[in-house]
Write a protein that binds this DNA or RNA. Structure first.
Lengths: 236, 236
DNA sequence: AAGTATAATTGTACCGGTACAATTTAACAA
DNA sequence: TTGTTAAATTGTACCGGTACAATTATACTT
């Protein structure tokens, strides 16, 4: 692991262990430099990472401060989207409904930038947090990139698998949000009524080289999905 | 304006003017260095800014490439949240319902980190994109930080005003998302029916020094609000 | 006590450099 | 042609430095 990532992790761990609150001051840059025995720019990169993550904010002339939002119940939108799993102490489980190889329809092919004759894995799941229904997910993986999946892998974290077993690294993703009403089928999976409100998120995950490899449609249970996004400045 | 911001702007402008598409390659780092006559680290900072904004992605050993999402109809979630106004060519207007000074209730005071005896501005608006109802907004500004507002200012962009006229700079914000049903009153403003689905977003805007100065509750028209979020890597 | 100028603190912008890892291209061999 | 190896390309990590702007603390005045 890179130095600045390692340092960022240690600082975050320190904040959690010491149970620091919003506004609490961290050691100054110069002290961190000597503590971790690295140059200023390395510390700066570590802090920048934490700033983007919403863990700290920096104020020139003053210091480095802890940033915390004040609503414990809310999940980070990105944590439910394959990213860093900071659901805290909450447990994420899945019911696997389908894992199969198939040909994509026109919409799926377009979103994945492939041909309708190329193979994809189709995965359908219902996901739970602490036993409560969170969402229904239907996702498609480019088989040329993810050559093998099974129910066991899919029951756990697919992203951990492709990352560690296949050495595939996720670069960026485009998420499309929309509020809508549930169809009858979806309502069944979520234990709700047809036409109940829902948040639909379609996401296209790209590798670091820009190639799409996963297109997923998620339908959230409106009562069990409260999200937080920590944004930075006018320049985000 | 800072060098790296200026360069970032020029690069983005170049991409738009040349109508570059997803995957198109930009000049290499070294050429940019000589073109703008700055050091490598300055170019790197400019590119990093654009990467966070979702405008480019960089691939070591290969080059710098244009990133574009492929759904023209969708608005960036942050552009409707006071941030960079890249709604493209779409026009944002407002009906001002209320601008008044008052004492906050307990909830508002808590979210703004002030006392119920402190003054706040209350602003209520209905917002439109290209004439269609987008959302109903109710927001509260700490009067100690924003000492004066009127209907004219509020009809335009409040953030531009506080930024330019008051010299106040926005640091970061916490956004809380939730799907729910409309109340009768809200439905009236949005031209919808009671119990129709809606996206509610509460946002707390902070200054660079970490002090909250704006707490707003926005209720979106489900049929006219489609959002895109361009996220970066597992480390966001 | 309250304001005002001054100095110390502290993070950010920017420079210029070395080493390196990932990718692409070129050269080569089967 | 096809696969393999080597070399060139290209962005990233990390170092160490100077200058500076924003904040905070101090000393000084009134």
């Amino acid at each position: 692991m890179l130095k600045y990532q390692q340092i960022a992790n240690e600082i975050e761990q320190y904040i959690n262990e010491q149970q620091l609150k919003q506004g609490d001051k961290l050691p100054v840059l110069e002290q961190m430099m000597s503590q971790y025995a690295v140059s200023k720019s390395t510390i700066t990169k570590a802090l920048e990472l934490l700033e983007r993550k919403g863990v700290i904010f920096q104020l020139r002339g003053s210091g480095i401060f802890v940033r915390r939002h004040n609503r414990p119940g809310y999940m980070s939108l990105f944590s439910t989207q394959g990213f860093k799993s900071n659901l805290g102490d909450r447990v994420l489980t899945s019911d696997v409904i389908d894992v199969s190889v198939m040909k994509p329809d026109a919409t799926v092919a377009k979103n994945l930038g492939i041909d309708v004759s190329d193979d994809v894995y189709r995965v359908e799941r219902v996901r739970y947090v602490d036993g409560e229904v969170l969402c229904h997910e239907e996702s498609y993986y480019v088989k040329a990139i993810v050559p093998y999946l099974n129910r066991e892998i899919v029951a756990d974290s697919i992203f951990d698998y492709v990352q560690s077993a296949l050495g595939v690294t996720i670069g960026f993703s485009d998420m499309y949000l929309q509020v809508d009403r549930l169809t009858e089928g979806e309502a069944g999976y979520l234990g709700l009524q047809e036409n109940d409100p829902t948040l639909r998120i379609e996401t296209i995950f790209h590798l670091t080289n820009g190639k799409p490899f996963d297109y997923s449609r998620i339908t959230y249970h409106y009562a069990h999905s409260q999200f937080v996004i920590q944004a930075n400045g006018p320049y985000m």
